[in-house]
C-alpha cells in the first residue's frame, strides 16, 4: 500500500538487537490524518517500529521520511529537533513532569521550540480547555486522575501542531472506561488538527478506534488493512 500524499513513510527498514531481528524489511506509508494501530504479541517488534518511525532508534537498513524529510539519516540532534517540531508523543503512563502544573507541562514543547511564554501558555490553555480540562491548569500531575493526566499528555502531544502523533500503549495504565475515553479524545484531537496517529497496542479495543490496522509478528508485517465503515 503506497500513498503519494504519505506523511510518514518507511522503506525496507530492518533493526536487530544482537541476534534478535526485531524488524525485518518493513515498508509502510501513513497518509496525513490517518490513524493506524500497530498490534502484535509481546516481542513482535511493534514498539521497535514506533521508535524507528520516531527516529529514536537508528536503523540497520532502510529509510524513513516524514513529509519527504529524512528521519533516519540525519544526526541525533536533527532527529531530536524533528521530533520536537513535527511529532507528538503519548506514553503509557502519561509521563508528565511532576513538578510542573498541567499548563506548564503542555506549554513545554512550545517553549523548547523557542516560542514566547505568552504564546506558549495561551495555546496550552486553549488545548487544555479543548480537552475538557479548563480550571485544572494549575494542578500538578499528582493532583490529577489517571484519565486527566492522559488528557494533559495528549494536549502536550498536540499543542505543537505535529504532523504525526505516536502513542505507545497509551491506555496501558488505565481502566477500560477511562482508556476508551482517552482513545476517543486522542483520535478526535489528532483528526481535528489533521495529524496522523500511530498507536502501538496489544488491546484490540484500543486498536478499534483507529482507521487502519497493522499486525506485526516476528518483526514483519503480517496484515495491513483498513477498517470497513458501516454503511
Amino acid at each position: 500500500m503506497t500513498n503519494s500524499n504519505a506523511t510518514l513513510s518507511a522503506r525496507s527498514i530492518s533493526k536487530s538487537f544482537g541476534d534478535v531481528h526485531a524488524l525485518v524489511d518493513v515498508s509502510l506509508d501513513i497518509p496525513a490524518g490517518q490513524s493506524v494501530s500497530i498490534m502484535g504479541p509481546s516481542g513482535s517488534g511493534k514498539s521497535t517500529l514506533l521508535h524507528c518511525l520516531a527516529g529514536i532508534l537508528k536503523l540497520d537498513h532502510g529509510d524513513i521520511s516524514l513529509g519527504g524529510e529524512p528521519v533516519s539519516l540525519s544526526s541525533d540532534a536533527a532527529r531530536s529537533r524533528l521530533r520536537l517540531d513535527r511529532m507528538g508523543f503519548v506514553f503509557q503512563d502519561g509521563q508528565l513532569l511532576p513538578e510542573l502544573p498541567a499548563i506548564e507541562n503542555v506549554a513545554l514543547p512550545l517553549l523548547l521550540q523557542g516560542r514566547s511564554r505568552t504564546e506558549a501558555f495561551t495555546r496550552a490553555g486553549d488545548w487544555l480547555g479543548r480537552l475538557g480540562l479548563a480550571g485544572l491548569e494549575r494542578r500538578r500531575p499528582g493532583q490529577l486522575s489517571g484519565g486527566q493526566a492522559h488528557r494533559v499528555a495528549i494536549a502536550r502531544a498536540l499543542v505543537g501542531a505535529p504532523a504525526v502523533v505516536l502513542a505507545d500503549e497509551p491506555t496501558g495504565a488505565l481502566d477500560q472506561a477511562t482508556g476508551a475515553e482517552v482513545m476517543r479524545v486522542l483520535t478526535a484531537a489528532a483528526k481535528g488538527v489533521g495529524a496522523s496517529l500511530v498507536v502501538v497496542t496489544h488491546d484490540a479495543k484500543v486498536a478499534s478506534w483507529c482507521e487502519r490496522h497493522i499486525e506485526i509478528v516476528d518483526g514483519q508485517v503480517l496484515t495491513d488493512f483498513a477498517r470497513i465503515e458501516a454503511a
Binding site: I56, A77, R79, S80, F91, Q95, P109
Partner: peptide, 12 residues
Amino acid sequence: LEVRQLGNLGVP
C-alpha cells in the same frame, strides 16, 4: 524514565 521519554519527545 522521565529523561528517556523527554528524549523521545525530542528534548535535547
